[in-house]
Design a protein around this nucleic acid. Structure first.
Lengths: 243, 243
DNA sequence: CGTCACATTGATCCAGCTCAAAAACCGTGG
DNA sequence: CCACGGTTTTTGAGCTGGATCAATGTGACG
């Protein structure tokens, strides 16, 4: 975990349309850059923050990917989110001034460190930024609803199909291929996230291949039949059009 | 759904310590009351808003209770939350200017209607209000994590025990008995929320009674053995200390 | 080229689902 | 006050999707 000296600005960041700067004027982005100056590199497997850490910053993912998870008192963990560039981590720590979950890099990644107190002050002066923060909070709540539907009601194959489509569409929004991508997380994390076991997930990958829905070699996935996969994922529209 | 003429102010509202006014000065509460003037009565079974409705207001529950749920395209629904007095409904509609979920009264209830545009403007001027809004968003995200843990990993009995303890502690925070309360929702809603079937929930109620953990007669529940129930609910601390 | 973590595959088991039917509860009207 | 019809809840019997346990395969890296 080192601070990078590279001065990369929001104005030319590749994910600015998905991140805090979205909807801000050039002048406001200039002001936002006062808050987003500090960068941080997190290596694969390293934590960005741990459960219980004091809340001071939000983190905007610049590159790479993370998982977030909560830990029960018995040590059992639940993966709650896979986060891609442009997404904000740490919002759930605000109310208690303490991170209730932990975030871990799934691959070598870099983030902008956003001191929340500073961001808060700026948002007070820049309504568009305020709105963008609300928007991100709200979006996250909306996504959680869809995951609840997945975990509460859907069969194993539907869950995995929904996840694949979700990740595919999120890569697409970031300018990458929607049909070919590398899952940066191990099967165990996918299984945990979906409320399944790694064995079940593995069997589903095999089955999806037999059914020519996908082509997978380890973590490299190619979607062969998006329509078929979407049908399997069900009517899960809001989930696959998410951001 | 009628507008009540009764002028009830935040300053003497019974749930002011749990709701938006929390942490605000008397002067700021006066200003907040400009936003919270309109009240609305919702009868049991009636919707407060439906999925797809344009987002214009948040709703603060004054009395009664609600369930919120999302509907998949195939009509399948997932109950996502049971909301009690002092809680805010509708936050997930901000980003799309459209409610992605619906909220329905579980009993005759009343809410404050908060025009969000107005609230937003005021929050821009009152930092303490701004912070309270962040806090509520953040708290909600944190709670969702706990529900994900429940749905992803926990057995049926653990889920129900966790829900009972959660509801008990929420009533307690509102000044009601923690050991005796009326569940305002039918078994089917409990089951749906917990990712179970109504039959399973009913069997668990019977079993919990046989094991002297609770005493239940229909929807009236008395917790006989809080320690035992908590152990069953597991190490699910953050969930049972929630608000 | 050996090691170690990750992934796949197979065999068996069981928690919770499904289907079915009976019982309790609630409002309504006679 | 009781009878009636609809809804909610309980209980029973059997089935099944996904878990568990166990073994084998694979690929990255020192």
């Amino acid at each position: 975990m080192t601070d990078s000296p590279t001065a990369v600005s929001c104005g030319n960041c590749s994910v600015r349309r998905l991140c805090l700067p979205a909807g801000l004027s050039a002048a406001d982005i200039d002001r936002l850059e006062q808050v987003t100056r500090r960068k941080k590199i997190v290596k694969a497997g390293e934590p960005l923050y741990r459960a219980g850490d004091p809340f001071a910053n939000l983190y905007a993912i610049r590159s790479g990917s993370f998982k977030t998870a909560v830990i029960a008192a018995d040590g059992d963990t639940q993966v709650t989110h896979f986060a891609l560039p442009g997404e904000l981590l740490g919002l759930d720590g605000y109310s208690d001034r303490c991170h209730p979950s932990y975030a871990e890099a799934l691959e070598d990644s870099s983030v902008c460190v956003l001191p929340f107190a500073h961001l808060e002050t700026l948002a007070q002066q820049v309504p568009a930024l305020q709105q963008q923060i609300y928007s991100i909070f709200s979006e996250e709540l909306k996504q959680e609803n869809d995951i609840l539907m997945l975990l509460g009601k859907r069969s194993a194959d539907t869950r995995l199909a929904a996840l694949l489509i979700n990740i595919s569409s999120r890569y697409a929004r970031r300018g990458y291929s929607a049909s070919q991508f590398v899952l940066s997380m191990p099967r165990t994390d996918i299984a945990n996230y979906l409320g399944l076991t790694a064995e079940t997930v593995s069997r589903l990958f095999s089955r999806f291949q037999k059914e020519k829905l996908i082509q997978a070699r380890g973590r490299v996935v190619e979607i062969l039949d998006l329509v078929g996969l979407s049908e399997l994922a069900g009517t899960h529209c809001s989930y696959d059009s998410d951001g």
